[in-house]
Every structure is written in C-alpha cells, then in structure tokens.
Design a protein around this nucleic acid. Sequence first.
DNA 1: TAGCGGA
DNA 2: TCCGCTAGTACAGTC
DNA 3: GACTGT
Length: 604
Amino acid sequence: MLPDSLSPQLAALVEDIPRNGDWIYEIKFDGYRLLARVDGGEVTLFTRDGKDWTAKLPAQADAIRELGLENAWLDGEIVCLDSHDVPNFQLLQKAIHDHRSRDLVYFLFDLPFLNGSDSRQVPLRERRALLEEVLSVTTPGILRYSAPLEQPPQQLLDGACRLAMEGIIGKRIDAPYAGTRSDSWIKLKCRRRQEFVIGGYTEPKGSRKFFGALLLGVYEAGRLRYVGRVGTGFDREVLHATYKQLNALEQAKNPFDHMPPDVRKAEVHWVKPRLVAEISFAEWTDDGLLRQAVFHGLRVDKPATGVQREEAILATRIKVTHPERVIDPAEGLTKLDLVRYYERIADRMLPWLRDRPVYLLRCPEGVLGEHFFQKHTNRTFIPGIKTLDPALDPGHEPLMVIDSVEALAGAAQMGAIELHTCNATADRIERPDCMVFDLDPDPVLPWKKVVDGTRLLRVVLDELGLASFLKTSGGKGLHVVVPLARRHDWDEVSAFSQAVARHLATTLPKHFSAKMGEKNRVGKIFIDYLRNKRQASTVAPWSVRARPRLPVSVPMHWDALDGIIHAGQWTIAALPSLDDDPWKDFGSTRQTLSKAMKKALGID
DNA sequence: TAGCGGA
DNA sequence: TCCGCTAGTACAGTC
DNA sequence: GACTGT
Ligand SMILES: [Mn+2]
Ligand SMILES: [Mn+2]
C-alpha cells in the first residue's frame, strides 16, 4: 500500500572516501530536497520536512503526472541551473519567489515505491534502473535523471570544491532505501581554508616536543576572538621552527578578548598576536569554533591585524545596479558607497536586525527623490532575506527579516537607505523587548539644550530604576532605548512611555512636550513615545538616514553624551571607532516595568 | 527597484 | 526587446 | 473629518 508520507533517506557526513564497497557518486545539489507522491492522477510534492510544495512547483507536478505512473514515490532535488549549468541556490530562491517553476529542474535519483510495490528493500542499483526506465518516456527538461558521475571520487571532490560547490554525495549501490540518516549514503564536504592569528600555545604531552596545540583567533571589531586550537599538521621540523618563533613572542597577558573555554591556565603560554597560520578545517560550529582544524604553515606575508573570519557569503557578492548613481548630491556619495557601508557594518548591525521584522525606507532616486516605506516582501526579492509567517500580519505578504550581510547589502541594492525595526522579536511579537524614547527637538533649539534634555530623561529613567542606552538618530535628535524583559504587552509599554513623557512635560514644561506637532514643541523637545506602538518602528542602530551626507544612527556610551556635537555628526564616510561596542550590555539587561515605577508615574 | 503588459 | 506604468505602511494626534 | 509626522 502506498504510504501517505515518506521520510527521506539522509546522508551521513564522513571525512574520508570509503575504500570498501561499491559506491556511486553524485554532486551535492545546491537546492531543495523534494519527494513526489503519485497516486492515480494525483501528484503531491513534499519537501524534506513534509511541507506540501505542489502549488509552488506546478510545472514539476505536471511533468511527474505525465509519466503516467499508477502510483509511486520518487525522490530527488529541485534546483535552478545557472548559465553554466551549475545549481545555484540563490537563483532557486528567486525563481520560487517569482513562481517560475518552469525554470527549475527536478533531478530524480531514487524510486522507493513503484506501481504498488515497495522497492525500499531492493538494492539501489535496481531502484535506479527502474527510475531510469520510468524517466525514459520523457525528454530531459523539467525532469532529469541524476546520472552517477563517472570519475574517481577524489577527482570529483576536488572538482566540486574548485567550482565552489559544497561537496559530493556517495551512495552504496547494493543498499536498501533507509528512511533516516544512514551510512549507506554519505556526504563528502569540501574543507574550508583560511588564515588565523596565533594567540598562544599549550604544553606538549607525552612524547610530543615543543608544544601541543596552537590557539587560534580572528579579529572582530578590533578584538581578537578565540576560534579553537590546532594540534595536527606539523612534522617535527615545522613544530620546532614554529616553536622558536612563538617563544620569542611570549607574553604574560592573554591576547584574546575572553579566556578560551577549553584550555587550562596551567598548560597555556600566551604570545603577542603577530603570527599568522594557514589552517584548513571542516566547518564552523554554531558557536563560531573550528571543527577539525589542520595546520598548513605560517604565513609571513600577511599582517595579523587583517585576519578576520572569511564568510563563504563573500563569494556570492550581490550585484549592484547603477553603482555610480549619486544618491547624496551634498557629498557626491553613490549607491555603491551605501552598499559598501552596509557590508562593512554588518557584523555590528546584524545583532539588532536578526529575529525581528525590518521595514525599509526605499529611496531609489536617492535622498532627494521620492521615497516610500515598505513593510512586506511584496514583489521585491532580496537575496538571502528571510520571511516571517504571514499570520504575523494577516492580509499582507509576509514581513521580512534581515540576518545576513547578503540580505543587508541586497536591501541597499533595492534602494533601501533606512532600516527600521519592530520593538519586538518575531517569536514573541506581542511582547516588546525594548522601549524607545525618540527625542525630537525644535530644529532651532541650541544643541546644548538637546544634550541637557537627554540627560534629564536619563535621570528620570535612572530614578525609576531603568537602565537605558543612547544613540544618535542621524537626524535632529537622539534616541534613548530601554531594554525590557519580554513580559509586557504593547499597550502597557506604550502607556508607560507616554507617562514618562508626560511626567517630564509636566515637571519641566520649558524643556519638554509630550504632544506631537510643531507648535507644541516650540523651544522644546517633543518626547516621541509613539515609537512604542504595535505598528510603529524606530530607525535601527547603525542604519543610514535618508538625509544629505548620509548620516548614521550610532550607539553611544552615556558618558560620551557631552561630546556629541550634532545628531548627524557621524556619516557613512565618518564613523567613530568601532573598537568597542557601547551597547554590549544591552542584551544582558532585562528589565520589567514594576508596580512601584507605575505608581511613581501615576499610572493607575 | 523591478515586475508587468503592451508595442 | 524596449518602454512606460505602477505599487510599495499604519498609526495616533492635532486642528 | 482632513491632514500631519514619523
Ligand atoms: Mn526623531
Ligand atoms: Mn519622532
């Protein structure tokens, strides 16, 4: 009997090409795994986790139907081939977004059920013969048979890596179809390789001479971050030569920004972070550490301070149209300048963007041209952008999330100069995780008054017991942000912020207004608490503003407040030092709005 | 900006 | 293939 | 009820 669902066989990750057994090899498709269920005339397409994608891929469903099978389960991968016939994941995402299923190719590689019989127990060799026969009635186009590659596996792997593909898949020709991860299917991944700074070494153990492992790091925002150790890849001679160089650089102080978690103080020697090592490794772990690092030599030609984590994403740099278009006539800044800024600032900015809806202020003709605000994906496709469950904003296209350099630069390519974020994360959208006070001064108010007013707001928040963080707006005023535990709902946070604004406007009516509108803030600062409404948003930290000179909203230390001379003081061309992060404690500050605070503000 | 329909 | 057209937020607050 | 600022 034909099952309603089928769990696909997955490949186990292995390090080495197997020596025993009969294997066939295929390229590791850069696409989505797709299973097809045929029952009479009815075809359903399922993703690896069982989502029904039939409606997204009508051309493939039709093509399968035309095979005229009584019933079957077919297994394969849906891909989009680029102009060189190489599967390209980005093109695939775009084609699916655009509903262009005709441009996609469904490579089929297995046939676990056919015409009433369960072929999962028959050897792969026979299943593939059946599959080839089934597909012989159609000319290869939308459906193709994934023919095994003919060269020896090592050659295949080398070739795949040269083409920047992920690796290759091996399958045992005599094995049944396992509905789980199994070692009869293996994946051989391309190893990664880059340079790292040596920040220390450990004592040798046993018969090992000179040192045990090198402690490696990369620079991130001016600090050396530990990424793991490497203890293999050197012969005795290299070991000795490296040791001599390390010895000369020994110092008492740990050069990393944190103590490496996996080394004991007693066994470690720190060195000045000057030496650069070439390392290959299997992959980055989710914690940002190296897996299976191997030493390949010292690099004498590279300065250590330039060593950073190299992202595979850099290979897929987005295409910038009209790079020379001047988007800011005041300074002659171009669209390419904007894209480069966002690429450069991504590491700093992404933590404030990931996990929450982002809204774009798009200015395709630059800061002086018409602009519009975009909350939903609509027709725009930005490579790498994530979409949220449409249920978060019913009756609309999905909301967007940016969590990669690629998507950030892609947004800029789409003419998005400003990025605004929601005060809540997508997973708990009804519980804001911060409260924003947007200080909007009368434009003619002397700057000193703005600084004084901002300090007064801080004092009030301090007295309530709330820590707050400061940033420039990039426009006329400053922003003060209070991190919150995700406990209160929008109405509560909004009412609280309004009460704070009212309190200041009541006690210091010469300085503050709690009412919107130009007339209400003559000679004063309007404390805009309306940023705390459910559908409102605030310009994100590190966002550029769509104003002359392209100013940036920059996070600041409170004790730097007096040094600020203008809210638009920093621009994409002139940023403060990024060495330290003034908001580094933001994430660990979780505060609740207590009864006592509300009482102090007179909220019932 | 880019998708679309029409020329 | 080229060209012109068009969509793209949601509020509270103020007057 | 229209208009405004964000
Ligand atoms: Mn403002
Ligand atoms: Mn405002």
